[in-house]
Design a protein around this nucleic acid. Structure first.
Ligand code: FES
Ligand code: FES
Lengths: 131, 131
DNA sequence: TTAAATGATATCAAAAAAGTATCATTATTT
DNA sequence: AAATAATGATACTTTTTTGATATCATTTAA
């Protein structure tokens, strides 16, 4: 059972780091601290910017700062950027549809559990993760 | 977020099928019904037997029957055969340990969520999955 | 003795996840 | 203006995990 991806892991720790740094930082200042590969972290940050979590500033002395207030960011906010949920009525095994889709009740039960887990991610604020 | 693997999916549906067939069946009678690849299902069944869920009977007219009573089997029972949980105090990213393992509080929170999900799997009986 | 089942194991293929490389664009500093 | 240092965009590669095969040995009932 893999709750989060490495991308989410890096993202969460990086966001926390930016917050500690006063709310703004560039990838070059972060990656070594959280031991993430630089180009990978860049990709992650671009997605965070596209998703409205961060604002990016280009050029010298550029970097990233929070768009969404740090205190309001949940684990779910970040997780859903990198990992999609199974759609309502869908099968947990994406694209390639399951054999006996129609008669399969499994997907419903599994989805319910997934949803419950998601709700919990939603209730977990990243500001509280380092308590 | 992937709650169960395909192996678990096949296993659950196959077990239900055996139950409907009166508690005993051979792989050759099952795989086409649940649309699982035969050799894959064989492997799955061997694991179910090794784990004490089923008993295997070799030879002609052989097959598999329940060792653990069907009504007592939970989703967790099957899931844990094919998917391991992160060990207590461990990092969700198996083998290759995380960079800042010591200072990382993330792993604790993630594990808590994983545990909660596991508890729910434990409370879900496969006999109830086709309601 | 044959047929039909599982046991055991090695191997392969496909998909997903993780990570790189490269060039373009933008803004600051000199 | 030029150099520098940041992100934007995108294509690619590698590694890991998952899903699936193939093969031969063993067992048992007919
Ligand atoms: S339809 Fe995919 S698990 Fe049932
Ligand atoms: S130690 Fe692995 S997620 Fe923190």
């Amino acid at each position: 059972m893999r709750i989060i991806k490495k991308e989410t892991d890096y993202a969460l720790r990086a966001l926390y780091f930016i917050h500690e740094k006063g709310g703004k930082a560039a990838v070059s200042q972060i990656y070594s601290q959280i031991k993430a590969p630089r180009p990978f972290l860049r990709k992650i940050f671009r997605m965070l910017a596209l998703s409205g979590i961060l604002i990016s500033k280009k050029g010298k002395n550029g970097g990233f700062e929070f768009k969404k207030p740090f205190n309001s960011i949940t684990l779910a906010d970040i997780n859903e950027i990198f990992d999609e949920m199974t759609p309502l009525g869908g099968c947990p095994f994406k694209n390639r549809i399951c054999s006996n889709f129609r008669s399969c009740a499994l997907k419903g039960k599994i989805r319910a559990i997934e949803q419950e887990t998601y709700q919990r991610l939603k209730r977990t604020y990243i500001k509280d993760m380092w308590d």
